[in-house]
Amino acid sequence: MSGALAERVFADKLEAVGFTDLVVVDRRPFGLRDAARYPLFTPDLIELMHRLLPEERQDQVAIAITATVVKPPSEADHPDDTADTAGTDPARAP
């Protein structure tokens, strides 16, 4: 969870590498009770979060999202490559 991003940042990173058509299809609150079911959250971390987080925050420490994205169907997402090809491809010559 320390490595989790804000949803907006996650979306920005998906788009930055070239993905399109982002749709967040599911959002579920992930609270301390959820975290406690995962053995990767050690008991001392759960206790620490119980102690430090305000009660109203304990039911939604994080949000589990599910999202879908698409890789564009053409290479048009790399305009520099297209420009280079257009300059050397005989088929594109006038």
């Binding site: 969870m1 989790a4 991003l5 804000a6 949803e7 907006r8 996650f10 993905f19 599911d26 992930f30 939604q60 420490v61 994080a62 949000i63 589990a64 999202i65 599910t66 999202a67 879908t68 994205v69 698409v70 890789k71 564009p72 169907p73 053409s74 290479e75």
Partner: peptide, 14 residues
């Protein structure tokens, strides 16, 4: 090209 990804992950509040 045209492929898709379905990803589930934890996100945090701002």
């Amino acid at each position: 090209p045209g492929g898709r990804m379905a990803v589930a992950d934890l996100t945090i509040h701002e």
